[in-house]
Design a protein around this nucleic acid. Structure first.
Length: 571
RNA sequence: GGGCCUGUAGCUCAACUGGUUAGAGCAGAGCGCUCAUAACGCUUUGGUUGGGGGUUCGAGUCCCUCCGGGCCUACCA
């Protein structure tokens, strides 16, 4: 059995994430983690909130909280929503943790020791009214090219021309509107990624099985124009990891912090250390996942993220890891996703367009969302949420095909034999045929899960559910019962045994329903089946069960229409 | 501007390195069943694979071109 390290891109602390964010990293990572655990592998599934950077400071200022308080509160909110969606992290950490501080400073020190850090003096816009340096896109003004009066300092949204903030006419702070701006000299550390271009390029070239989306983005950044550029890894902010060279002060860098994109991926390691701390374990417990000299040699490391995060995970973070000269574990597989759109447009926080995690859970249980999102995951191209499609998928797949199967089997048994697995009769070719069919489908399902082809996996899983309905239709226990009750008993016994099997197989996608099914069947065997004939005789004659509540309630046309209107946003 | 992805039945998607009459699910039509959440099963109608040209014995798949959709383009994260 292998050891699998799984990380989901860190959700930014600034606000509740929408379903597009969820399906782009955390949710598929969870399905994969669940499958790997069930199939007997040792899994470490890590996520954390990404808490540094300008947006966090501004969001805190808006609510009047100290930024540390704001982050602590929002971490709690996001952690609760993660639980609501049944995301099975082994640890949900915080990039502001002491562990991350130490690791970030340590790695920066190593990079400096290896000559991969450069001090660069540059000019940046400072807002006196806001008391802070402004990132380019926090400066607004009139576009010198087209005259648009709300152009941002990095690019004009109207004419798409790339800008330098000093080119803007009548520049003002996007935060306060203040025009009291000045250009100041400030010194920053740069990670010399350019020095590692060849090494990174060779490494990327070896990843022939990665999604095209992943490698094409990496190569674009590696070779576009002058090639991979150096990147500033410090900022003039109060909130963040203070710049230090290991545990020593860094002369000239007083009052500065590391750039959020430098420390965020390091938190994958930090959160694993936090996990060890939380469980009272020593450093060796987390190092065996991350240090190839401490046992991480045989770890397979898989990352999940939306496509916007790919450059950081395929280039910047590996540059940090490799450049340290220390034996840290590099990622083995980068699974990236396109975007999920909402009903013809993008999800939009500002316009209140689309569905956010908290709202989703208020409307329906998490299984409904998990199933739809994962069966429509934007693996090959952007995909789109519509209420119509959501209603159709949920009602048909979950309520009709799976839910109704459980219902018809358990209720028929109760009416003829009571809530006990009936005795008598023999299995024949029909049952053998079902086993053969499921064996084939199960293999395909396992292959899809192993390859992290989640859409295809849901198709296979659904096909396995359908086999149950086909079997019942052909076997007709309700008709056989009239002439041969013993044979009917055998059919029902076999059909009842399909329920815990379906529960176990479905668990990566719909964990709550899986629990309900197992509880109803009075079973606690969650082991992945290796021999279906054995698995399908797990419930012996005489085993008691209870008819479960309706597993999935259908979404009515009225509800669908109501939701459509509610989430359409303003405009 | 540059780069990448994408366009397959009304809808959502398949189709390994080019290889027999392009497949599923949903929706539609017909039939069957009546255990079940008016659920299930069977059969079936839908495609000159965005348009055009080319390479090849053979193209959804490769090349060129045109049209449409999307993303990225490095100081948001």
């Amino acid at each position: 059995m292998a050891r699998i390290l799984i990380t989901s891109a860190l959700p930014y602390i600034n606000g509740i994430k929408h379903l597009g964010n969820l399906v782009g990293s955390q949710l598929p990572a969870d399905a994969y983690a669940r499958f790997m655990r069930q199939t007997g592998h040792e899994v470490m599934f890590i996520c954390a909130t990404d808490e540094h950077g300008t947006p966090a400071e501004l969001a805190a200022a808006k609510t009047g909280e100290a930024v540390a308080d704001y982050c602590a509160r929002m971490h709690g909110v996001q952690a609760e929503l993660a639980r609501g969606f049944r995301l099975s992290f082994d640890h949900y950490g915080r990039s502001s943790s002491a562990r991350n501080h130490t690791l970030t400073q340590h790695l920066a020190g190593k990079l400096a020791d290896n000559g991969l850090i450069e001090e660069v003096s540059e000019k940046q816009v400072y807002s006196l009214a806001d008391g802070r340096f402004l990132p380019d896109r926090y400066i607004e003004g009139t576009c010198p090219n087209c005259g648009y009066d709300r152009a941002r300092g990095d690019q004009c949204e109207n004419c798409t021309k790339q800008l330098d903030p000093t080119e803007l006419l009548n520049p003002r702070s996007a935060i306060s509107g203040s025009t009291d701006l000045e250009v100041r000299e400030t010194k920053h550390l740069y990670l010399k990624q350019s020095a590692m271009r060849d090494r990174l390029g060779e490494w990327i070239d070896r990843q022939t099985d990665w999604p095209i989306l992943t490698t094409s983005i990496a190569k674009k950044w590696l070779y576009d124009g002058d090639g991979l550029r150096d990147r500033g890894i410090t900022r003039d902010l109060d909130w963040g990891v203070p710049v230090k060279r290991g545990d020593k002060d860094w002369p000239g860098m007083e009052g500065k912090v590391f750039y959020v994109w430098f420390d965020a991926p390091i938190e994958y390691i930090g959160a694993t250390a936090e996990w060890a701390d939380a469980h009272g374990l020593g450093d060796d417990a987390w190092q065996r996942w991350w240090r190839t000299d401490m046992g991480a040699d045989d770890v397979r490391y898989v990352q999940f993220m939306g496509k916007d995060n790919v450059p950081f995970h395929t280039l910047s973070f590996p540059a940090t890891i490799m450049g340290s000269g220390e034996p840290w574990k590099l990622v083995d597989y980068v699974k990236s996703f396109n975007y999920l759109n909402y009903d013809g447009g993008q999800f939009s926080t500002s316009q209140g367009r689309g569905i956010f995690m908290d709202q989703a859970l208020d409307i329906l249980p998490s299984d409904y969302w998990r199933w739809w999102l994962l069966s429509h995951a934007p693996e090959n191209s952007d995909s789109e949420f519509t209420w119509d499609n959501f209603q159709a998928s949920v009602n048909k797949d979950l309520a009709d095909v799976l839910g109704n199967f459980v219902s018809r089997v358990t209720k028929f048994c109760r009416s003829k034999f009571g809530e006990v697995v009936p005795d008598g009769g023999e299995y024949d070719e029909a049952e053998a045929g079902v086993i053969a069919q499921i064996t084939t489908r199960l293999k395909a399902y396992e292959d899809c899960m192993t390859a992290i082809e989640l859409r295809k996996a849901t198709t296979e899983l659904r096909a396995i559910w359908v086999i149950g309905n086909e079997y019942l239709q052909a076997a007709q226990p309700w008709a056989i019962y009239k002439t041969d009750p013993a044979k009917a008993a055998a059919i029902v016994r076999f059909a009842l045994n399909l329920i815990p099997l379906y529960a176990v197989l479905s668990q990566p996608f719909i964990p709550d329903a899986a629990d309900t099914m197992l509880a109803a069947m009075n079973s606690d065997n969650r082991n992945w089946p290796t021999d279906l004939k054995v698995a399908l005789s797990a419930l012996p004659a005489g085993h008691e069960f209870s008819v479960p509540e309706v597993l999935f309630t259908k979404i009515s046309d009225e509800t669908r229409a109501e939701m459509e209107a509610r989430f359409a946003g303003q405009n």
